[in-house]
Design a protein around this nucleic acid. Structure first.
Ligand SMILES: Nc1ncnc2c1ncn2[C@H]1C[C@H](O)[C@@H](COP(=O)(O)OP(=O)(O)OP(=O)(O)O)O1
Ligand SMILES: [Mg+2]
Ligand SMILES: [Mg+2]
Length: 942
DNA sequence: CATTGTATCGAT
DNA sequence: TATCGATAC
């Protein structure tokens, strides 16, 4: 509920227009014989005569009501004419009513600001129009007055019995001694009467209207006198009107909230609400609802009339009651196809007529389940980026359905899913398309709400780095982002085996990992987190089903409220894996850098101030969506493991866990590949195919990057690859449940870039030259293939430029302990090649740790994503493409592997490692599928 | 598990 | 963000 800001002195002039028994009128226009006779519109008719959804006023006089059955209506009014809603694809088709609604909107939107509030009603903000009319042709000086407006009802207008109401109303409308507010209402009454006459003339539909100082009162008024009438609510009449108004008549109070007011507070009329203080109402109903209640009791409602003539979403659905319940995938698929076909058709009309495209496809269903205890569970809804094309929509919707069904039936049962005793039935299905935006796509909104440090001087003093001049704030530092930690318990559980291992006597991380830990601790404890309050640091190492992370927890009142972490994908939760992750993290963290907030604006038709005339590229944040989707898969795995542990493995050891992981088919390589492919496909929302011109989101910068993507893809045929590759890409799945961003610090999933269009091409060249040894490691950070390869090159280009221009800047020194950094930088690569040495040198000579964005190469951060993409982005641009011949720049030094770690691994892996330990035999390592070093490659190269 | 088919919004 | 429930037409 919108929090009203306006006062009782609200001087806007708002109209609400609602069509009279709308669907009936639509049918009556089509079949004029039905005019003036009791008529109703029914949906279907085979079961009890169908259900009524619209009833003419003549029929209402006989007690016929909406939601009655056709049979009931006949009973109440035998002469009633029942008209059926058209049926298409086996379901009700409301398109005729939608078009009729549009006809009306196109007329009513001729004056003032118009908001389509439903299929048959609009709000109009007529303030300006009324003021203008008052200036130009005030009623008091009008010569002849349209009859229609004199039929208005003016609340609170008193006149003697014998007097002609029309004359009294005319006098009220033309009073020269009225308050300015009333005069404006009077003007609006003329405007609305005129609009209503236009509607009647052009569409043959009648409607009713309310005119008041806010939406709530206008809506109330339009319903007071129907059909074909209008009602004015002068300010002076408000208190009297509300005093005795049954609370349930108010919009929003027709449901449970209204009932609660009646039963819990004994409030029956709006007037009864006045006795309660704002605090009291807030206390009971929450700050927003409480304030809203307090205000509406006083006739205050600040809700604006949105200028919006079109719906924000489209949907198509059907219920399958009783015996119609769908019990087979085949029947579900059939209906999904029908629904999607309708949806697709409507999306195409929207595209043609309104030049808009939808971005999200959602599937909803209702289901019941028998044969299991937890059978009251709700069927979850699922969504994904929407791809145009009926077939694609159908396929995607079915995929969504299947994912939801798996969840509904329980992951744990996913193999033996539904058999004789374990059945499901679908009682309703619907698909909808939302996030509809106009094309072209200059439409991203940067969203930074909380926790952004805004004072450049302070930022600079804390960062000790120069702040580009157009920076408005900084959000987070070193890529650390705050996340609300929802499922801390689950994590604890999942990490338990490993945690226990670390507690065993004599447990020791290997030296590199230990150093990494120290470096990380230092980074975490010294990082100025500008965006967030003090934190009680607590260093943690933890793991979920498929990832491991390190981080710090922000505690408040002994409760964890935020979590700073870097999580890396691991294939198995082994000590070895953790050590590698730690080391990779330690390397990556050196390149974390602040994200500067350049602006806080909506990009609409034109570019924001300061950027006009610049050549910019706005990219689609589809990668972010992709990452989320893959994370979903991680969540499934996690769910599975949680259930497994709960059901049968309370005190499982990590070896047990390893066993189950490797057995469960969800971890199979094929499965994982399928998921990746699906997500690549599904999330490639940049247009392809015949419609792509119309669908264009703007310059397609990333087609260039796509080419780099496939490089280095290798088949994992060797055992170790199978072993390690058998998990979903995840790291990110560790983060996934850490949803609910609290500070909105985000990576540049979209960027406004200044350089010319060919930067991208040029860039891959740059990248090769640059050869940042950290790239490879870092780009695996997010576990999401696409993320690492489709990245905007901006990040690395930034760094390169910066390091050239600012290498003399004092690097921000970590407190003490430079040796660790040194250690990592100089760490000898056991498989080093010439190229790799070059790489290392290049890196060494540069050593720009404090990178920042120059003022002419600025990233505007938009959209939201996990912080875990940050590193990827920072070091990206040099991922797959610049790994020379499958060689990686940095690798684990096999000689340093603690033999005890190797013993943790399954025999076949141990064997493979043994072969590397014989120096000569390092197998055509290059064949990426065969070395443990593959493990360090970005996911997409595996 | 016979009130259906849509739509919007705020909370989490 | 994705998902859900409440509310309404
Ligand atoms: N519960 C419903 N289910 C399906 N369709 C509905 C439902 N309620 C309303 N509609 C459709 C049919 C209506 O003609 C149309 C507009 O609704 P609404 O304005 O509330 O009533 P109405 O226009 O039929 O009569 P009124 O003259 O009272 O406004 O929306
Ligand atoms: Mg109506
Ligand atoms: Mg209506």
């Amino acid at each position: 509920m919108p929090v009203a800001r306006r006062e009782t002195s609200d001087c806007r002039v708002i109209g609400h227009v609602d069509m009279d028994c709308f669907y009936v009128q639509v049918e009556q226009r089509k079949e004029p014989k039905l005019r003036g006779v009791p008529t109703a519109v029914v949906q279907y008719n085979s079961y009890k005569g169908g259900g009524l959804i619209a009833v003419s006023y003549e029929a209402r006089a006989h007690g016929v009501k909406r939601s009655m059955r056709g049979d009931e209506a006949k009973e109440a009014c035998p002469q009633i004419q029942l008209v059926q809603v058209p049926v298409a694809r086996g379901k009700a088709d409301l398109n005729t009513y939608r078009s009729a609604g549009s006809e009306v909107v196109s007329i009513l939107s001729r004056k003032g600001r118009c908001e389509r509030a439903s299929i048959d009603e609009v709000y109009l903000d007529l303030t300006d129009a009324a003021e203008a009319m008052f200036m130009e042709t005030p009623p008091e000086s009008m010569e002849d007055i349209q009859e229609e407006v004199t039929k208005s009802h003016v609340l609170g207008l008193q006149f003697e019995d014998g007097n002609d109401p029309k004359e009294e109303v005319r006098k009220w409308l033309c009073r020269s001694d009225a308050s300015y507010q009333d005069k404006l209402l009077a003007c609006a009454a003329f405007i609305i009467a005129d609009l209503r006459m236009q509607v009647l003339k052009e569409t043959e539909f009648t409607c009713s209207a309310g005119i008041a100082h806010n939406k709530m009162l206008a809506k109330l008024a339009s319903a007071m006198n129907k059909p074909a009438q209008q009602t004015v609510v002068p300010h002076s009449s408000v208190a009297g009107l509300l005093e005795s108004l049954p609370i349930k008549k108010m919009k929003q109070l027709g449901g449970k909230l209204g009932s609660s007011l009646q039963s819990d507070l004994g409030v029956n009329t709006v007037g009864d609400l006045l006795q309660f203080s704002e605090e009291k109402l807030q206390q009971r109903y929450g700050i927003n609802t409480g304030t809203w209640l307090w205000n509406i009791a006083r006739g205050i409602s600040g809700e604006e009339v949105e200028g919006r003539l079109l719906p924000k979403s489209h949907g198509s659905g059907k219920t399958f009651p009783g015996p119609q319940t769908l019990k087979t995938i085949g029947s579900v698929q059939h209906w999904i196809n029908e629904l999607c076909e309708e949806l697709s058709e409507r999306l195409h009309s929207d595209l043609e007529q309104n030049k808009r495209i939808a971005h999200t496809l959602t599937l909803h269903a209702r289901a019941y389940k028998t044969g299991v205890p937890n059978s009251n569970r709700k069927f979850p809804s699922k969504s994904c980026p929407l791809r145009y094309g009926t077939i694609k929509i159908q396929e995607d919707a079915l995929t969504l359905f299947q994912a939801a069904l798996r969840e509904f039936m329980g992951f744990y049962n996913s193999k033996t899913n539904w058999n004789e005793n374990n059945k499901w039935g679908i009682t309703s299905l619907s698909v909808s398309a939302s996030k509809i935006v106009p094309i072209p796509s200059q439409r991203f909104i940067s969203r930074f709400k909380n926790g952004v440090a805004m004072d450049p001087a302070k930022i600079e003093s804390v960062l000790q780095w120069p702040v580009p001049k157009n920076v408005k704030g900084v959000q987070g530092f070193l890529g650390l982002t705050g996340y609300y930690r929802k499922f801390i318990k689950d994590y604890g559980k999942l990490a338990k085996p490993l945690t226990e291992l670390t507690k065993k006597e004599g447990f020791k991380w290997n030296d590199q990992a230990q150093m990494a830990i120290e470096l990380l601790k230092e980074k975490i404890t010294t990082a100025p987190i500008l965006a967030l309050p003090d934190f009680d640091q607590q260093f943690v190492i933890e793991s979920d089903a498929s990832g491991v992370g390190v981080g710090a927890i922000l505690m408040q009142d002994k409760r964890p409220i935020a979590y700073f972490s870097k999580a890396l994908s691991v294939r198995n939760l082994t000590k070895l894996a953790c050590e590698k992750e730690l080391m990779a993290l330690a390397l990556a963290i050196q390149h974390w850098r602040p994200y500067f907030l350049v602006g806080n604006y909506k990009v609409e038709e034109s570019l924001p101030q300061g950027l006009e005339g610049e050549q910019v590229t706005i990219t689609e944040p589809a990668k972010v969506l992709a990452s989320r989707k893959v994370n979903k898969r991680g969540e499934e795995i996690q769910q599975y493991l949680i259930q497994w542990k709960e059901s049968s493995a309370e005190d499982a050891t990590w070896e047990d866990e390893y066993t189950i992981r490797s057995q469960f088919p969800i971890f199979s390589l094929e499965d994982r590949t399928a998921v990746e492919e699906a997500s690549n496909d599904r999330y490639q929302t940049n247009p392809r195919g015949p419609l792509s011109d119309q669908l264009s989101h703007g310059p397609k910068v990333w087609n260039v990057y796509v080419r780099r993507k496939k490089k280095g893809v290798a088949e994992g045929t060797h055992s170790i690859v199978k072993y390690f590759g058998g998990q979903t890409p995840s790291g990110s799945s560790l983060n996934q449940p850490l949803d609910n961003v609290i500070d909105e610090a985000v990576p540049p999933s979209s960027s406004v870039r200044y350089p010319e269009e060919d930067t991208a091409m040029k860039h891959s060249q740059d990248c090769v030259d640059q050869q940042d040894p950290l790239c490879n490691l870092s780009s695996k950070v997010d576990g999401l293939t696409e993320e690492s390869s489709l990245i905007s090159p901006t990040g690395s280009e930034d760094r390169r430029k910066q390091s050239e221009e600012h290498r003399d800047l004092p690097a921000k020194k970590p407190r003490g302990n430079c040796s660790i950094t040194k250690f990592f930088n100089n760490y000898p690569n056991s498989q080093s090649s010439l190229e790799q040495k070059n790489v290392t040198n290049a890196q060494g000579s540069r050593s720009a740790r404090g990178s920042y964005l120059t003022s002419d190469e600025v990233e505007v951060e938009m959209s939201a994503a996990s912080s875990h993409g940050d590193i990827v982005k920072n070091v990206a641009g040099c991922s797959a493409a610049n790994i020379p011949h499958g060689r990686q720049a940095w690798s684990y030094n096999i000689d340093e592997i603690d033999p005890s770690i190797i013993r943790e691994l399954p025999p076949e892996i141990q064997e493979e490692i043994q072969t590397w330990l014989q120096p000569q035999k390092r197998p055509n390592v290059v064949k990426r599928g065969s070395s443990i070093t593959n493990y360090f490659l970005p996911d997409n190269s595996r």
